[in-house]
Design a protein around this nucleic acid. Structure first.
Lengths: 120, 120
DNA sequence: GATCTATATTCCTTAAAAGGTATATAGATT
DNA sequence: AATCTATATACCTTTTAAGGAATATAGATC
């Protein structure tokens, strides 16, 4: 039952924040650290958790590991991501993350770069 | 963060099925047993779990404990219940539950009776 | 090839959940 | 009052998760 796997991924705040931020586009671990302000281990482990359940995909770019939502998303995942966006619209924690994310990579457009290499 | 609590409730198949069936209206434990075909302990415990997190409300009716979705539902809960309905629309397990539920209490209308007392 | 950087993994501890068996409880019925 | 019914709770076992500290790894750079 794939649906339960999705909910398992959603039942931790850190993972919720990761996914929420990822909706805006791919990001590397160091940027996640800056956006969530959480220790590297924590972020890496939760990303591994998401990855093991196919909620995210990874691609290496030099030293950086760039995480992204899967290119092809199941109906269930798509629906739940939309629902998450809806539920977090007025949530300070999630909105703060988004604000930090925008500040961090204002120039970020391409789908396969996290912008780390172009940021000092 | 109430949102995480909701997802915690959703990350188990049995609880998903309970909630999914509850969308159709209140139900008592013995009917849940008949619909889900799961042992009483299991159902009772998951209902207690949902209750502890305010995802369901209970009311006693004689010997029967009638469970229902909360009268006032948060935006988050409402959104996720809708999303769940959407995600299970074509899922055999959930649809089978619904079918059994319909068969079981075809005459069930009122909001505060599970129909147990009127069923042989 | 040594070192640096970004990230992953291992090990540990603690806590929480799931499922089952057996038992308790509360109200109804006799 | 004794018993029956529907449901809850306690207890036990096994599994899973979370967080942190320390360490490993892979690729880049000097």
């Amino acid at each position: 039952m794939e649906l339960v796997q999705i909910y398992e991924c959603l039942c931790d705040v850190t993972r919720l924040r990761l996914l929420h931020v990822l909706v805006q586009g791919p990001l590397c671990v160091c940027h996640f650290q800056a956006v969530l302000r959480e220790p590297q281990v924590k972020i890496s482990k939760h990303l591994a958790y998401l990855r093991a359940r196919d909620l995210v995909e990874v691609e290496r770019d030099g030293n950086w590991m760039v995480y992204a939502l899967p290119a092809k998303r199941s109906r269930e995942l798509q629906a739940n991501l939309a629902c998450l966006q809806d539920c977090t619209r007025e949530n300070p924690v999630f909105q703060r993350d988004l604000a930090r994310r925008r500040k961090l990579t204002p120039n970020l457009v391409g789908p396969s770069t996290c912008g780390c290499s172009t940021t000092p």
